[in-house]
Design a binder for these strands. Sequence first.
RNA 1: GUGGGUGUAGCCAAGUGGUUAAGGCGCUGGAUUGUGAUUCCGGUAUUCGUGGGUUCGAUUCCCAUCAUCCACCCCA
Length: 434
Amino acid sequence: MSKQSLSTQPYKGTRDFFPEQMQVRDAIFSQLRASVESYGYQAYDGPMLEPFELYAAKSGDEIVSEQLYSFEDRGKRKVAMRPEMTPTLARMVASRSNQLARPIRWYSIPNLWRYERPQRGRLREHWQLNVDLLGLASVEAEVEIVQVAIDLLRGFGAGISDFEVQINHRQLMDAVFEQKLALSSEQVPLVARAIDKRAKIEPAAFEKLLVEAGCKAQQIEDLNAFLVSPLMELEADFGDNPGFKDLCRFFDHVNAIGLGPVCRFNSSILRGLDYYTGIVFEIYDKHPDNRRALFGGGRYDNLVGMFGGEQIPGVGFGMGDVTLADFLDTHGILPQVSPSIDVMVGLFDASLFDLSQQIARQLRQAGLRVSSVLVPMKLGKQFQNADKQGIPIMVMLGPDEAQQGQVTVKHLKSGEQETLAQTSLVPYLQNLLA
RNA sequence: GUGGGUGUAGCCAAGUGGUUAAGGCGCUGGAUUGUGAUUCCGGUAUUCGUGGGUUCGAUUCCCAUCAUCCACCCCA
């Protein structure tokens, strides 16, 4: 905060991506795109600013009141920087609802903003892969979406036992809260919050939260019994519940497909967003050093209809870049970055500048990515610079080569080099880099 | 929003109420006008995050502020 100069730091909770980091980001995003596109999902994007009301209507309370970046524009419109992508998606789908072929399979990697205090895995700006499938009301949609989520991680090389998909259903939980426990509408969010924390705290602390929420001993006992019950044992109490039926069908499919071992029913999974209406799920890292939720999603059947047109059911998930990178790092499967420049054309002295540039142009026309030295410097320095940028090949041409119509190609990794005719340079390099 | 830790160069860091603020890595120039290493020589902080206070004197002590990290809150 010097008074003379501006700070070079990025805004709190945001990151600069220098070329080195941008390469990693690009490599991760490319892998994500390849995975979701293999399922036939198409890319879309929307504006970073949306009307404030878009979020005021459907996201959780705290998200809007505490963590939304919002302001008034010059035309007195209240706008917000998008804190999540799903409302934008719903708006876009609603605006073309009668033109889009169903089911709609869309994905995006938007940057999202939330005003909060940065900490591990949580920043103010982050990128989030969003994958959504709209137009299907039945659990076949969830079966696909969960497969996409699983194959995303597998696409990076994650093992089948490195993570786990934990699944629950909002309608099942509604039945528990309203019918089985007969909670008041004020108690439900408090109990839900306690359940959300259950895995992280002691049983006694969990009970304390329930007592604070106004639960009686019998209710606590019933809830605890429910939370530890496997899905099969819930049939007696919830056999007619649509959520229970969905879950059964979902697990039947998943088991038949062979993904049973990766998926588990967990009635503690709730997720905070108000708009989920059906199955909700979270993907958990099973590595002991990183045991936490990586990402999650669920079904939102009422969101698109908010815009007044046709009600279109949807299911999807969002995966943040920070937690994903932590996962990949923890498991040692960060993608390898490949060099973004194929060849550096060196410069021996100023008199050979034009010839060097001609060679470089020739190589670019042949489809190679070519950087060049513009001002002469010591040869050793040129090699060093090129190597530092990860460029594998250096093309050199001094007075000797120039006179004989030759060039020298040096492989920076091995240090080996050979001299060949300028006319055979392009095929030589193309063959090498193929 | 709450509580706590930490701020000395691009990075890692030593240091002290008293003239010029160690060292290492990195970067950079040279020794070396046809080859990346090693070695050697030089340059890399007019000042210790910023502002104020105490003091004859502050990088050091005090306050504030900013940044950052950790936990909480909440989670898209």
